[in-house]
Simulated assay, not measured.
Amino acid sequence: MALDQLKAFLVLMQSDPALKDAVLASSTADDVAKIAVGLGYEFAGDELLRFSGQKVGRVTVSKRQPPGEYS
């Protein structure tokens, strides 16, 4: 199940500073999903976006607005 994979990836991210840095440097949710796939986790960027606002351990998923966009 993708949600379980996503949660497991977020737990791993808490204990791996290099992974956390790579995720924070990512431009899109799809980029984060590609990092996860490379580590054996299966979820899509849109699943990550739907998880926005939720928390797993010390990680809260939040959608960043790209520079230049106005709300």
Rank of each mutant, 00 (worst) to 15 (best):
L19R: 07
T28I: 00
V56Q: 10
V61T: 05
M13R: 09
A8D: 15
L10H: 11
M1G: 15
R58G: 03
A36H: 07
K63I: 03
L39W: 12
K63R: 08
A29N: 08
E42D: 12
A18V: 14
L49Y: 02
D4L: 14
Q14S: 06
D21W: 13
K55E: 12
F9W: 06
D21H: 10
V23E: 02
A44L: 06
Q54M: 05
A25V: 00
K34L: 13
V61D: 02
I35C: 01
V11P: 03
A8I: 14
S26H: 00
Q14T: 01
F51L: 02
L24E: 15
D30E: 06
D30Y: 06
A22I: 04
G40P: 12
F51Y: 09
G57M: 04
K55V: 14
M13D: 01
G45T: 02
V11K: 11
S15D: 12
V59S: 10
A18W: 14
D31S: 03
L48S: 03
R64K: 13
K20S: 13
I35L: 15
G45P: 03
G40T: 01
A36M: 06
A29Y: 15
A8H: 15
A33M: 05
L3D: 15
Q14D: 04
V37S: 12
L6K: 05
Y41D: 03
T28L: 01
Y70A: 13
R64S: 14
V56D: 10
G45Y: 00
V11C: 04
P67T: 04
D46Y: 12
K34R: 14
Y70H: 15
D31M: 03
S71L: 09
I35N: 09
D31F: 01
Q65N: 04
A18Y: 15
L24I: 09
